[in-house]
């Protein structure tokens, strides 16, 4: 029963933490020549790491094809951002984009945390009520 108390929020919290890391890296490298801004494709990573949404299966049409084992497919990868405007030094970090993504991620992290906190409060209420 307690395996999945927090539902998707447990994984979402971890992913938001990792995304924050990636976005902080973009912010830190805003002045590094040839640095390419990266981001996590959140929906696809969360979809493949949660049990509710099955990841796309590889079709096996020949005996020589290797069937991927469970969990062998990459859970997610970092993708490069397409800049709105090219810069002379090859850097693709655009400060406003990154700052907006950072604060959005911040709010989403806090939302996940709040959902988990509410769940804990509910459980504590039920435990204390008996």
């Amino acid at each position: 029963m307690f395996d999945n108390i927090f539902g998707i929020h447990e994984q979402a919290l971890l992913l938001h933490g990792q995304r924050m890391n990636v976005l902080a890296t973009n912010l830190a490298n805003a002045d590094t020549p040839n640095y390419k801004a990266r981001d996590i494709d959140f929906a696809s990573v969360l979809g493949s790491s949660s049990q509710s949404a099955a990841p796309l299966a590889l079709s096996v049409t020949s005996a020589a094809h290797i069937v991927p084992l469970e969990g062998e497919l990459p859970a997610g990868e970092l993708k490069y951002r397409n800049p709105y405007q090219a810069s002379l030094d090859g850097n693709t970090v655009e400060m406003p984009v990154e700052q907006a993504a950072f604060s959005e991620n911040n709010v989403r992290y806090q939302a996940s945390l709040q959902f988990i906190n509410n769940q804990i409060a509910d459980l504590q209420y039920v435990i204390a009520a008996q």
Partner: peptide
Amino acid sequence: PVFQTMMDDSDADFDGESPSAGV
């Protein structure tokens, strides 16, 4: 000064690629 990205392989989570990299 010339800045360079400092790849941190200690937490290579994403298919061997690390999400964090300092300067």
